[in-house]
Structure formats: structure tokens, C-alpha cells
Amino acid sequence: MRILRLYAPSLEGEHTLCYVHANGAGCSCVNDAELPLRFARAGEPLVAEKFAGALTVVLPPEAGVEEGDFLSVDEGALLRWNAAGEKFIVCAAGFIGVSQFAEIWKPLRSAVLTVSDKGSRGERVDTAGPELERLAFLQGCVTEERKIVPDDPDAIREAVCAWAAKGISLILTTGGTGLSPRDNTPEALLSIADKFVPGFGEMMRMQTLKYTPRAFLTRSLAIVRGASLIIAFPGSRRGASQCFEAVSGGLRHAVETLIGASSDCGGHRRGA
């Protein structure tokens, strides 16, 4: 679908392009002015008091947004609907323009597993896990579970299987994908896989060669167990971030396909 109108009386009415972001207090801003973001469907009146002091994004008549849904704007912002406040929360800053493509995303359930001997003993601060959680959120994934386990195949299998049994749609692991004797994540995941998805690891290695000539040494991969997609990322924050970037273009579509869901627009442009 496309954005049909941007209406903000306090910013002199109709707009063709606006920049939205969050300030230091977490409040939504439009063109640097603190202003709530609301939405309306085409044909609905915008004269109500709630629209007067806000930027209203007008969507097609069939559009519907429920609590926790995301609005992803092509090459632009990511917003999340707060039903209680009747407003969008800015999750990622960007431009919103009339005629831009937009998608309504249902939130996806996700979990992050950090695999590290030192991390499990409290001897190393986990930076890769929180980074994966942040990046997944920008794909409309809400992390419900997070855990740090040692480089032990049984511990990895136990955590992943438990989350898959709970219906977590996307499970991200970080660590244990190298060549050392204690790097066991790929073997642990393959031992519980219903399907192996080779394209994720292939894309990670291919795309991260532009950052390091040693990219081919990572054994990152992806599997399916039940209705869960499980992806293994490197253990460093930088490596995990770069590999996530490599696969982000098809990540959400892969999960939606696996769980039998579909978004309001099939383009899946964000991150492409």
C-alpha cells in the first residue's frame, strides 16, 4: 500500500515529506517539533480534536493497525502502534512521504541465545546478543527470551528446543561458529534440525568478504525446527551485525512464510 496523505495542522497543514525521529526523552518528533503520530484511513474525517496537534498518516481504507503492530515505510521510518495512547512510537528515524510504499507488520516472536564459556561464567560482557536483539526489532521482531549458555552442545540444544516448543518464530544464536575445539553451535543445531537452510550462511560469507578476507572461515548457518527459524551468527558484535545485515533483506519474509503469515504488502522492502 502507499501513504496517501500527511496531515499536520500545527505544521501548516498538508505535507508531502516529513522527517520523524525520537528525542532524548523518547517522544516522537516531526521535523524537529515534538508531535505525536497518528493514523487514519482514507475517507475518515480529520477534524477531530485528536488530529489537530499531530501528524496524521493517512492510509488506504482497508488498512488496519492493532496494538503492537509496526508500520514500515519504504526507505524511511519504522513506527509501532500504541493503542492505549492512540499514536505511533518512532522505532527508527527516517523520512515519511506521500506515495511511499508502506507495510503493516505483525510483531514476530523472537529469542536470542549467546553461546560463550566466558560469558556464561560472567567473565565477558555480552555485546553481540543485545545487538542482534536491536537489529531484529527493526525487522518487527520482539525478543521474549534471552539466555547465555556455555559452548556445550547439550546446553545449546536444550535452549533452542525449549524456545521452539514455545512457538518462538525466530531464534538467533551468537557464538560458537568458528574452528576452535569448543565451537559447537553448528553441530548442535544441525542435530535438531528438521530442515537445513543453506542460503543464510552463504549470504553471510559472501557479503562479509567486503569487510574481511577471512569471512569464509565462519560456519554460520540456519535451520528450521518445527515452525521456528534458527540462525547462528558469529560471536563478536561486529561480526554478528555484519552477518545480520547480509541476510536482513529476506529475514522477515522467511519467518512469515514458515509460520504461514503474510503482511499487508508482499514487497518486504525494508532491509532489501
Rank of each mutant, 00 (worst) to 15 (best):
S262L: 11
H21D: 06
L170S: 00
S262Q: 12
P213H: 11
L172Q: 03
R270N: 04
R124K: 15
T218W: 04
R146V: 12
A188G: 03
S120L: 08
R205P: 06
R2Y: 13
F95H: 15
K147D: 01
L6C: 08
M1R: 05
C265E: 06
F70A: 02
R134V: 15
L35W: 01
R124W: 11
V98N: 09
A136D: 07
G176N: 00
R157N: 03
G68W: 06
A272S: 11
G43H: 10
G76M: 03
V73G: 03
N23R: 02
Y7P: 05
G24M: 06
S180Y: 01
S116T: 09
I104G: 01
R2G: 04
I230L: 08
I192M: 06
I171H: 06
C91H: 11
Q139L: 12
L35V: 04
G176T: 02
P130K: 04
D117H: 13
L71A: 04
T208C: 12
K118A: 10
I168D: 00
L17P: 01
E62Q: 14
G122N: 08
P60M: 10
C29W: 05
Y19A: 08
N31K: 12
L221N: 12
M206F: 14
R2P: 04
K195P: 05
A84V: 09
F137R: 13
L55Y: 01
G239C: 12
R41S: 02
A164H: 03
T208N: 06
A159W: 13
F200T: 08
S262H: 13
L113R: 02
S120I: 09
R182T: 15
W163K: 12
C265R: 14
G167R: 05
C27Y: 08
